[in-house]
Structures are given as C-alpha cells and as structure tokens.
Nucleic acid binder design. Sequence first.
DNA 1: ACAGCCATGTAACTTGTTACATGATTTT
DNA 2: AAAATCATGTAACAAGTTACATGGCTGT
Lengths: 173, 173
Amino acid sequence: MTVKNSLLAILSQEPTHGYGLKSAFEETTSGTWPLNVGQVYQTLNRLERDGLVETGPVDDSTRQTWQITQAGRDALGGWYGEPVAADPPIRDELAIKVLLAVATDEADISDILTTQRTATMERIQELTRHKRKADPDAELPWLLLVEALILKAEAEVKWLDLCEAHLARRTKR
Amino acid sequence: MTVKNSLLAILSQEPTHGYGLKSAFEETTSGTWPLNVGQVYQTLNRLERDGLVETGPVDDSTRQTWQITQAGRDALGGWYGEPVAADPPIRDELAIKVLLAVATDEADISDILTTQRTATMERIQELTRHKRKADPDAELPWLLLVEALILKAEAEVKWLDLCEAHLARRTKR
DNA sequence: ACAGCCATGTAACTTGTTACATGATTTT
DNA sequence: AAAATCATGTAACAAGTTACATGGCTGT
C-alpha cells in the first residue's frame, strides 16, 4: 500500500507523468528508497483499475499525465488519518530470526547477535556522519529521515543487548 | 523470505507436517504474528520447487511430513549468518508518510503526528502491562518479543517528537 | 449430535519487484 | 558520436495472503 499511497500523495498536488512520479518519490525520500520506474507504471494501472487515478492531459504534447480522482483523495485522506497499522505488528525479520534461533536451540545464537550488532553499529556511525553534515534548513526531510533511521537502529542495538543479557542469565543457571 | 526461512528453521530440528509448522511458528512468536495454514502449504511447495525441502515419512500413517535438505540447511545457515538487510533500509511506512506530508505541504501534518503518537503511546502502555506480567523463566521468548516491540515503539515516539520540534522551528521563522 | 480444533490442499489475488524492449532528449 | 538520463510500457516472477472446499478427530 505504501507505494500506492505515495503516488496518490504526489498526485494530490498536481497531475504528473510516470517518470515524474518516480523522481518525486525519490527526491522526497532523499534517495533512501529507490523506486523502479516500471513499478510506477504498474501501480498506476492498478490505481486506475481501482478508480483512484485517471489519465490527465498530455503535457508538452508528449507525456501522458495522471491525475487523482475524488475516490483517490478519499483514500489518501484515509491513509493520512489512520495511524500506521500495529495490530498485528509488521513482521520483524530480526526478532523472528532470533526467536527461532532461541527456540530451536541454534548453537550460534551468540554469533547471530554479535553479527547483527556489529552491522547495526556501523550503520549508526555512518548515519551519524550524514546527520552532522546535513543542513537543517535546506535539507529538513533528509535530516528527519536520517534521524528516524538512527533511532530505529539504536533501538535494535538496545534490544540485542537485552537479548544477550537474558541469555547469559539463562545459561548461568 | 521471512516465512520461508522460518519454516526451514523449524524443519532443521525435525521433520514436521504442514499444520505443525503453523503451530510451531505461532508458538515461537507467541501468537504475535499469525500464520495462515494455507500459506504454509504454499510456501512448502515453493521450497520444494527450489530444492530446500522434500517430503519425508508419513507419521501416524496419516500426516505427510516435510524435511529439510542439505541445500535447505545451507540456505538457513546463510540467513543466520547474514545480518538482516539494511541497504536500502526496509520501507518505513510512517517515515514515508510524514515525509510526503511535509513535501506536499499537507495541512494536517500536525494531526498526523498527533494521531500516530497517541496510538503508539497506547501501544506502549499495553505492551508494558504484558511485560510486567511475563515470567522471564517460563516465557523468555515472549518477554524478548515484548521488549523488542516496546523499544521500537519508543523510538517511534522519539522520532515524532523530533519531527514536531523541527517543524515548529521551521514555522517560527 | 454438534462444536471446535486439527489437517490438507487449491484458486485467486495483491503488492512489490525485476528484466526487457524501445526510443527520445540531453549532456559530454 | 557516445554516454547518460528521460520516458513509456509489458512480461514475468516472488512473496504474502485470503477464501474456499473437504474431511478427520476430540471433547462435551
């Protein structure tokens, strides 16, 4: 749903052609989430099928633009109005992996935790470098995004530490 | 990939029949992530197609079991050995939503942040109740899971606060 | 007898994604 | 002239998910 709603959000501003949607999405997310153009056209067809967008005027007499319909605006309003779903929480690959490793008594559980922590801490370092370089006036979206990624990564490291503590405690007895 | 690898992890212990895989997965994740049985059979067919599992003996002379192949063990080892992918980071619906709202100058950006924070804080309260009730000896996986969800939710709230601070600062000038 | 769970399986569908074919325009 | 980017579109596939059909077993 994320890609669909994102395209609707961009189209809610002005009619846009396919490639323009790709560019706008990647600009807005500062290149963090690349979007294959092919997927834009696929998604537009699906949105049209569902009556959320329709073809608009041809700009420069070459490019086909798409525009949002009222149903599309309603759907977008619904997306903005509802908190992101947390029930059931979205599948957390790391949590599932660790829980399965614990449940199946996978020998290398400690290795798994260490490997993940190393990777995540390196990531935090890199993100922090980006954050220091970011200009909060000119690049507010980029800064917000970097901060989101850092906070997520930090939460992950905290959890990995908790896991180790629990497991060490369990092994001892 | 998560469901596929999860089934491999369970099968790495012992051959299991379809419904047993569903039960084992839900038990391991303490019911947090329900798994439709139909999906188990679908996934088993795909794993068989890829040579990662094969049909095993029929237990009780009624139920068809499945067992992991060497290729399956290799794939599972790869999953355990690699940190979960962070490049590009997995799509964060909330971050994308907020960034798009900022970029398109969506009027209700403050509402979006408030709605999300309210929902997430309620979630934290509920999770904290679960955490207090959990017995760390008998229910270690459940406790770990609850802690993961709490840490994630807390990071989300922190980020929402940061967003508001940045936006307030921007509006002022 | 009936409800509820255990159990298997298939069909259909959604979302996301990549690979490919094709060509115009722009930059070097 | 070559390379890069802009631009559109289709085919095919991967992964997740639901709905449905079907029947056995178990406890009340």
